[in-house]
C-alpha cells in the first residue's frame, strides 16, 4: 500500500497527490511514469511522475479528473492509500546536454514537463518553460518550473501572463533566440500544434504520449501508435517520441476509444436490433447487450428454479 502523504488542489480539476513509493522515488528518471491501481476493482491508470523525493521516499502525481477512475483517485485524502503503484515505466527522456531548450506544458502536462525541465537545468541547459491554461486558475506548476529557469505563462483569455496560446510564445522564443530542442507535454492538439510549428525551423521536438495502456510493459499493445509510419508502443518504446514523426490524429482517435463508451454501446445495440428486424442472424438466448447480461441472468434463475423443483 502507498499512503497519500500530501494533497493539494492545483486548479479546478487538477490535483496533486504525494504518495509513498520509496523504490520508485529512488530510481525514477525524467519522463518516466507509473501505473496506479487504486484498489481492487479499480482501473489501472498510467500517470507520469511529476516529482520525487528520494529522502522522504515519495513521488508526486498530478492528476486531472476526467472520469470515474481519476475522480476516485483525486478524492483520496492524506492518510488514505493506493493499493498498487508499478514503475518506474517507460524510457527516460533523452536530455539535451548543452544549449537552450524550451519545455512546453499545457494543462496537466505542465506537471509532466516539470521533471524534464529540472533534468535539463541540472545538466547546464538553459531552460525556458512555456506553459499555458485556459485562464489564471488553470495555470499550474509555475513556481516549480521557475527553479529550472525562465517561465513564460500564457492564458487563452488573457487573464494572466501573456494572452494567447503557448505556440505563439514558442514561436517568438525560437525566432528571437534560437532553440536547440523543444519538449512538449499536454493535450494532443497542443502537442500537434507545437510539432507543426517547430517543423519548418527544424528544431528537434519531443512529445510525451499519454496513450491508453493496461500493463505498461508491452504486453497489451493498447498503446500502439504510428510514429514515422511504424507502429510502436508508447509504454516501452516511449512515452516520448520525435513529435515530427507522431501520427497525432491516430493518437487522439485511439484516446477516444472509451470516451463515449455508453453512447457507443447504445449504437451497437441499435445496430443489432436493426439487424434482427431485417431478419439477420439472431442467436438464441435473448441476450441483453448493455448493461451486462440482465436478461440472461433472469433466464438462468428461471432454469435453476425449475431444476430445484424437479
Amino acid at each position: 500500500m502507498h499512503a497519500v502523504v500530501d494533497r493539494a488542489q492545483l486548479s479546478p480539476n487538477v490535483t496533486r497527490l504525494v504518495i509513498e513509493a520509496p523504490r520508485i522515488a529512488e530510481i525514477r528518471q525524467p519522463g518516466q511514469f507509473v501505473i496506479v491501481h487504486r484498489a481492487p476493482g479499480a482501473e489501472r491508470i498510467p500517470l507520469t511522475i511529476a516529482d520525487a523525493d528520494p529522502q522522504r521516499g515519495t513521488i508526486t502525481l498530478v492528476i486531472q479528473a476526467v472520469g470515474k477512475s481519476t475522480e476516485d483517485l483525486v478524492a483520496l485524502q492524506v492518510g488514505d492509500a493506493i493499493a498498487d503503484v508499478a514503475g518506474p515505466l517507460g524510457r527516460a527522456t533523452e536530455l539535451l546536454d548543452h544549449g537552450r531548450a524550451v519545455c512546453v506544458g499545457g494543462g496537466v502536462g505542465t506537471a509532466v514537463v516539470h521533471p524534464i525541465a529540472l533534468g535539463l537545468a541540472a545538466r547546464g541547459v538553459e531552460v525556458i518553460s512555456v506553459i499555458g491554461g485556459r485562464s489564471k486558475e488553470w495555470v499550474i506548476f509555475e513556481d516549480e518550473l521557475r527553479r529550472a529557469g525562465e517561465v513564460i505563462t500564457c492564458t487563452d483569455d488573457g487573464s494572466y501572463g501573456r494572452h494567447g496560446f503557448v505556440t505563439d510564445a514558442l514561436r517568438d522564443v525560437i525566432e528571437a533566440r534560437g532553440v536547440d530542442a523543444v519538449y512538449a507535454v499536454g493535450p494532443v492538439p497542443m502537442m500537434r500544434a507545437v510539432a507543426e510549428l517547430t517543423r519548418p525551423y527544424g528544431v528537434p521536438t519531443f512529445a510525451s504520449l499519454n496513450a491508453i495502456m493496461l500493463d505498461g510493459t508491452g504486453m497489451c499493445g493498447g498503446c500502439r501508435v504510428a510514429v514515422g509510419g511504424k507502429t510502436v508502443y508508447a509504454c516501452v518504446d516511449g512515452p516520448e517520441f520525435d513529435a515530427h514523426q507522431v501520427d497525432f490524429r491516430e493518437l487522439a482517435d485511439r484516446l477516444g476509444t472509451y470516451r463515449d463508451f455508453e453512447a457507443r454501446a447504445l449504437e451497437i445495440a441499435h445496430r443489432r436490433d436493426a439487424a434482427a428486424e431485417a431478419g439477420a442472424t439472431q442467436a438464441a438466448g435473448g441476450r441483453c447487450l448493455i448493461p451486462g447480461l440482465a436478461s440472461t441472468a433472469e433466464a438462468q434463475e428461471a432454469v435453476e428454479a425449475a431444476g430445484k423443483r424437479a
Binding site: 476493482g41 482501473e43 489501472r44 493496461l214 476509444t257 451497437i268 447487450l289 448493461p291
Partner: peptide
Amino acid sequence: ANEYLTRVNLMGAWNPESDTPVLRGH
C-alpha cells in the same frame, strides 16, 4: 487477445460493475 482477455479477466470487465471498460460487439 492479450489486451482483450486482460481487460475481461484480470481487470474484471466481464462484470459491468468493473471500472475497467471493454468494448462489446454485436
